[in-house]
């Protein structure tokens, strides 16, 4: 039986969610030998406005490249969380930024409140790295693509000269994610 795993990265324009999706898809497709697509939906604004990026990972052909039944939702803003949590499937995973998302949605899914943006600020130096921290958290919580694949994809994608700090951001997220998993 083939599998199809759907992730939606959501927040606002400028948070690097499209890049996070691309890195995740490349990790799966190039380094883990799976099939993957990444798509996005955004408004006409360059910054702000709602932004979402979707990744489908499968070991089979991916016909429809958009999410239909979400396995994992990442929400970095309250607005994104409110808008998208209903699309998460039963038993799915919702990861929200602990500070940005105050009203926690209720539903038949596991919810993780993680101070993603704060971790990026404190442990990596800038909130800008929240997208890569989030990738680490996802890798710590769910087992869809391997850590090594994600690291390779990050190294290949981020601007030259920023590889190390981005990998550090990934490690910060990974450790945090693993912590949440064991406490569950």
């Amino acid at each position: 039986m083939s599998f199809r795993y759907e992730i939606r990265f959501s927040g606002e324009g400028g948070q690097g969610l499209v890049l996070a999706g691309k890195i995740f898809a490349e990790a799966a497709a190039i380094y883990d030998g799976l099939n993957a697509t990444q798509s996005q939906s955004y408004g006409p604004e360059a910054r702000g406005g709602s932004s979402r990026s979707e990744v489908i990972v499968s070991d089979d052909e991916i016909d429809y490249p958009k999410a239909v039944s979400i396995d994992l939702l990442l929400a970095l803003t309250q607005e994104a969380c409110d808008r998208y949590y209903a699309d998460v499937k039963e038993g799915g995973v919702v990861i929200v930024d602990a500070a940005a998302v105050q009203t926690i949605p209720e539903g038949n899914f596991k919810i993780f409140q993680v101070p993603i943006i704060e971790l990026a600020r404190q442990k990596v130096g800038k909130p800008l790295f929240a997208n890569i921290v989030a990738l680490g958290i996802i890798a710590g919580i769910v087992d869809v693509v391997t850590e090594d694949a994600l690291k390779s994809a990050i190294e290949a994608r981020v601007p030259k000269g920023t590889e190390e700090i981005n990998l550090q951001a990934f490690q910060v997220g990974l450790q945090e994610g693993k912590k949440y998993l064991t406490s569950f």
């Binding site: 497709a29 697509t37 991916i62 490249p65």
Partner: peptide
């Protein structure tokens, strides 16, 4: 727009 912006293997 979907095909233009979708990333695929």
């Amino acid at each position: 727009e979907i095909l233009a912006h979708v990333s695929e293997k």
